[in-house]
């Protein structure tokens, strides 16, 4: 079953991928192709756009129209693709630094427009490709190579940020909760509007070692223990104490941007 999906959607000649053993990114990429497969999207009409960083290498491995852009700008390129060719399913694969630091402006404005782009942020709480510097999602007082005495920055809750900026669908899951993650990505792609998914990954090589989080298996276990499904949390709030909620966090369909633009085109056509 799995290798069938790999054959169907991955560029096998581009493998093996560059990700470290124990990295959560491969699980997330697999969840993305499962979601695409479940939705039976025409691969010719899928455009994967990524920025720069470990996660953004995913676009090269996936057999669609793929665009590996500059650091932080995936959503800006994706907006151009979607705006000029609205029948494409545009999916942005990006990292925490790529989306919320250098690309933070593009994230909030793509969300504000509610343009039909699904953004999946592989959040490993660190800049991995450059060797372990703290990112906007590195927890307070955790360590990075540029936070040798502890990180004094407050961290972003990416889901709150996306929702506040106007995303019409927001979800979160982790590399450990791969089945739920694929379902959330499926719902996110199905939403006609701006969808944001925080896919919590793990980086044993840099974040893990720097913060004494144990090996890759331990870090996976931590994801299992730290995150609680929203459905469980709603029934038994005491189980969510001190933990992070995952699941579908917000689903509020709104008029979509390219649809609204099409109405202007149609109106002008009628006038002429």
């Amino acid at each position: 079953m799995q290798s069938e999906l790999v054959q169907k959607y991955l560029r096998e000649d581009r493998l093996p991928h560059i990700w470290c053993p124990g990295c959560g990114h491969g699980v997330i990429m697999h969840a993305v192709i499962r979601a695409i497969d479940n939705l039976k999207l025409d691969p010719e009409k899928v455009c994967i756009v990524s920025g720069i960083g470990c996660s953004s290498r995913a676009s090269g491995y996936m057999n669609f129209n793929t665009l590996h852009t500059t650091h932080g700008r995936a959503l800006a390129f994706a907006t151009g693709v979607k705006m000029s060719q609205p029948d494409l399913h545009v999916i942005v694969l990006t990292g925490d630094g790529d989306t919320s630091a250098i690309g933070g402006n593009h994230l909030i404005h793509a969300a504000r427009r509610n343009i039909d782009i699904t953004t999946i942020t592989f959040n490993n709480n660190i800049y991995g490709m450059t060797g372990g510097q703290y990112s906007p999602t590195t927890p307070y007082m955790d360590f990075g190579t540029t936070a040798p005495y502890g990180n004094i920055d407050n961290s972003f809750d990416l889901c709150d940020l996306a929702k506040g900026a106007g995303a019409s669908y927001v979800g979160r899951a982790t590399a450990y909760h791969a089945v739920q993650l694929a379902k959330i990505i499926e719902s996110a792609i199905s939403n006609k509007g701006f969808s944001f998914v925080e896919a919590v990954s793990s980086c044993p090589t840099y974040y893990g070692r720097k913060n004494k989080k144990g090996d890759a298996v331990n870090m996976m276990k931590t994801l299992k223990d730290m995150y609680v499904d929203i459905k469980i949390a709603e029934k038994k709030p005491e189980l969510a104490d001190g933990k992070i909620i995952f699941g579908e966090l917000y689903n509020n369909p709104q008029d979509e941007y390219t649809d609204k633009y099409q109405k202007i085109i149609d109106m002008l056509k009628k006038e002429n």
Partner: peptide
């Protein structure tokens, strides 16, 4: 489209061209 900044304007222009 009026983008959120100059960088995005350039990026979106390139994205648009890729669709032909």
């Amino acid at each position: 489209i009026q983008m959120e900044d100059e960088i995005a304007g350039m990026a979106a222009t390139l994205g648009g061209s890729l669709t032909g």
